[in-house]
Amino acid sequence: MAGRLPDPGFFVGYLNSVPRPLAIFLVVVAAALVGGMAGLAFALGTNANDPGDGTFARKLGKQEMTGVLLENPYPILRVRPDARNPEARTIMLTVPGKRSVKRRGRKLFGQLVDVKGFMFQRGDIDMLQVQGKNSLKAVEAGEDEPPPTFTPAPSEPLGRWRLIGEICDSKCHLGAMRPGDGLAHKACANLCISSGAPPIFVTQEEGAVAGETFLLMADQDGGPLPGNFGDYVAVLIQLEGEVERLDDLLVFKVDIDKAEVL
């Protein structure tokens, strides 16, 4: 349908010529579109929440620890102090991906084990991602030596607390991704927790409980939280329960059904 030029001011898409006043207007619109999008990108892009300092600390290199592997409430290692790790600590364990270390450690729970892997760290809490060949194995006694033992310190009760905070999946929150909290992250958190990542309670206020912000969650008997509590993940809730200390890790033992969404 090519032909004569259209009347001034009339645009016909398949004809190359565009009336000059219209062309000038369209140049302005195009510039406004590109400029506007650039401005909005900068505004929205700079307008980020602080996702915190959760880090996958690969730079620290592979960590090696020896300790007692416990299953409840979630796989944790009660670390035996030695030259590599002078202080007693309790550390949560994970494996690569959204999976639990339970499968790898199922025959080793309750035993003294050597563990190797890389750390996730955020504030006063950390987590070891068990990875690599021979990264989780029972400690073997040397020849003519008695089997090595280690008795972790008993848990220290800290009383009953009412806390306000958010249930997060420990892996994402400690640095697998940033941000690893909030409603936009809820589905991922649910998937991680249901796949084996230990749920942690992050208090609204920093250092709210004995100077600590993060607590490993457990049910009232010290086992894993029951069933599907996804409704309470990634939202601000109020929860009561006993808090106890395992070395440097706080555990929050709760009846999750009594959680109150604020």
Binding site: E156, P157, L158, G159, R160, W161, R162, L163, I164, G165, T203, Q204, E205, A208, V209, V235, L236, Q238, E240, L262
Partner: peptide
Amino acid sequence: RQHGPTEKSAVQLEKPAAE
């Protein structure tokens, strides 16, 4: 949208038994 708590976010309801 949820906002921060109006009261303290951590309240100790009971001290540990030994203490």
